[in-house]
């Protein structure tokens, strides 16, 4: 998975031991392990926690990647799209 902040990097970035305490605005990518309508268990770089799906406006299933803000999934991430975006940026620089 290639999105945004790998967790260890993030820990260094905000200079904390426990990753969970200070991240407010930064979205963290997480993989859904299991879910129902309103909540999901996700894997965030090896640690599991429950998140809310109250603010997710798309269907998600086990195995999907979501962006998590303060314990809420806000969007489904598509790893293939990340590659495409990078290509688009590189093309843009070639114009």
């Amino acid at each position: 998975m290639i999105h945004f902040y790998p967790l260890q990097k993030l820990a260094k970035y905000v200079n904390i031991e426990r990753i969970e305490v200070r991240i407010m605005c930064v979205g963290i990518p997480a993989k859904i392990i299991e879910c129902d309508e309103i909540s999901a268990i996700v894997d965030i770089s090896g640690s599991q926690r429950e998140i809310s799906l109250l603010t997710l406006d798309a269907q998600a299933a086990a195995g999907d990647w979501v962006m998590v803000h303060a314990g809420f999934a806000v969007t489904v991430l598509d790893p293939a799209e990340a590659e495409e975006t990078l290509q688009m940026m590189l093309d843009m620089a070639n114009e």
């Binding site: 999105h3 109250l54 603010t55 997710l56 406006d57 962006m67 806000v74 969007t75 975006t85 940026m89």
Partner: peptide, 17 residues
Amino acid sequence: TYTRAASSDGNKKAQAL
């Protein structure tokens, strides 16, 4: 350039909440 996460309409469910 952040289309991989942000759409032009945003997240309607979060807005409604």
